[in-house]
Design a protein around this nucleic acid. Structure first.
Lengths: 343, 343
DNA sequence: GCGCTTTCTGTAAGCGCTTTCCGAGTGCTA
DNA sequence: TAGCACTCGGAAAGCGCTTACAGAAAGCGC
């Protein structure tokens, strides 16, 4: 006869000559069990290579030990850094982290929330920009609502608007504004902005913050100065190439993301232009690699690890009234060698 | 009265005026259910925002829809790339991915396997180097064994030796050997090797492959030419600094990892040395960023995404006899501008 | 050594779902 | 209209665990 795939609590109990209840108590230490019995149970468990079935446990009412994280793409360095913070905290709390990449597909995002809901995850974390499309946000909200009602905890990073949940919010507008000021101070007056998809709130905020600050200084950003592209290295490369093809008249390029800035620099190089001698380039995020580029990238530094840490801490912290807590985190302009004084 | 946190199948059944059994069948489509009943069930489920409890489902015998991935550090670009491949395939199969970072702590690794075992994950994937310490590998094997016996599937990437499980193996020895040959062809005869911790099999293989190929050409690598350090950018920086401090007499630096090579280049720069004019630098892995460095890094290119894809596919593929399947993947030397002819 | 409290152990219910086993309903043929 | 083969729906068991609840043992003072 085929043996049962895993040994169960009952097997252990039988082997130790006690009841399942006692075995459970001995293993979990919920109640006092006389030492010699506890010993026997532990030994039996050891010998049978017993591992409690987490599903049975969860079903029987034990606390859930999983938190779900939904991001756009695991292999994006921005997310990797944030995830690092999340994992650190999760590991301190003995939580397992379930990760899902949406590849920027809103439907997939909703589907993942649903799966995580089915798992009865202790918390769900959404990392990265939301979508400007109200329908999608509404669908997401509808999926989240019953989860929250059922005691689930949700926190989001860098995503706001419609969702009434705990939020960790990098100050995208302010950061982009500060960057605009810094670049103006360097004497730049003509800019090209490399934007990600307008459908993302993060893009809207960063572009908006940058434009507004420029306007305040009497510098206009024309629609043609803003190029939209994918939120990736190749997106940055493509956008930059497009600009170069139709003729660059800016002295400075601001990419809404470091990853895009990296692509932009590559495109500039491939056209024989030098950074910052011919064009200055600035990014946003301060992902770890950019300080090792040549030249190191000027950027708005976000505390990426902390973004993740705060998010999971927020989600794990009791919030009786279910008030929306917003934790803003400032970015700091870091001037490195990719930007120079305008000629 | 406080409502039950989540609506259950029974609630749905009641609302639809059918038995739980019928509701289950309607929702899962296991058996034919008459259209009008199925309609009613679906509608009730919709209205109640019903999400099946994955735990109950798993307990009742449904297939498990989670695969566990254990890596050293999520924020390492090497892993991020491999994870990208895993997630892609997982998403095609509607699987949820649970990720754990061990931070190179073997005990934590075992603990995570145990947690994943408790979750009855459909498969467990171990990404990244194993440990040279036989005790640790044995402990890991002991944890994995009952899981395998219980029908669990395991695959590992870039990790071998003791574990008798499906393996995706980048050809570390051969790759490092090929790199040695390429560097010899450029005229280099004096090398410094930046190694990660000797306790990792990957390090041993890469250093070994490099050394052996050198020896074959009559070039000796003295112990002092090999510097051991952490497997990170800062580790590479520190190791390079140490070498520079006591005096560099090599014309070429081989770092066993791109990430370490990046640190090495930074250290060289900070000392005013230029790459490759003063020293050539080569890495291993071909993580995406290195082609955008200045100079772009010479390295051994591994198909990182594919490593992940193969691993999960291997684990998901039936393997009746439980034979150990090894899928070797070759690396390819890519000469970029960080290496030059020796003077 | 008796009765009392206190501590420990076992019995049994129940978490939410799937699935087997039947009985009831349906459609077809003669 | 009776008889038969099917198709569908419901009752109930059971997945492995936790946790009241209640009963047994142990400890205490007298």
């Amino acid at each position: 006869m085929q043996p049962r795939p895993h040994s169960t609590l009952e097997d252990v109990a039988k082997a130790a000559g006690v009841s399942p209840a006692t075995a459970s108590r001995a293993l979990n230490g919920t109640t006092q069990v006389r030492p010699h019995l506890r010993e026997r149970v532990l030994k039996a468990a050891e010998e049978l290579a017993y591992t409690p079935n987490a599903h049975a446990r969860a079903l029987a009412g034990a606390a859930h030990r999983t938190v779900g994280v939904i991001c756009h793409d695991v292999s994006d360095p921005y997310f990797a850094a944030v995830a690092g913070g999340i994992m650190r905290v999760a590991s301190d709390h003995d939580l397992l982290v379930t990760l899902a990449s949406t590849f920027r597909d809103p439907e997939r995002e909703v589907a993942y929330v649903s799966m995580l809901r089915a798992e009865r995850a202790a918390a769900i974390l959404l990392i990265g920009s939301g979508f400007e499309n109200p329908d999608w946000e509404r669908a997401l909200g509808a999926e989240l609502e019953p989860y929250l009602k059922g005691g689930g905890r949700v926190a989001v990073v860098s995503r706001h608007r419609s969702l009434r949940v705990d939020t960790v919010l990098p100050e995208n507008r302010a950061g982009a504004g500060a960057m605009a000021r810094a670049l103006l101070d360097l004497g730049h007056r003509r800019f090209t902005v490399l934007a990600g998809p307008r459908t993302l709130t993060t893009v809207a905020d960063r572009v908006g913050g940058f434009r507004d600050e420029l306007r305040r200084a009497g510098v206009a950003l024309r629609p043609a100065d803003i190029v939209e592209s994918a939120f990736t290295r190749d997106g940055g490369y493509a956008a930059m190439t497009e600009v170069l093809t139709r003729g660059l008249d800016a002295t400075c390029v601001f990419a809404v993301t470091d990853v895009m800035a990296i692509g932009a620099v590559a495109a500039l190089r491939d056209r024989g232009l030098s950074v910052p001698a011919d064009v200055s380039v600035a990014g946003f995020d301060d992902i770890p690699i950019v300080r090792d580029l040549t030249p190191p990238l000027t950027t708005v530094a976000l505390p990426l690890q902390q973004l993740g840490e705060r998010a999971i801490e927020l989600a794990l912290t009791e919030n009786p009234g279910r008030r929306r807590r917003i934790h803003r985190m400032a970015g700091e302009v870091v001037i490195r060698a990719s930007t120079a004084k305008a000629l």
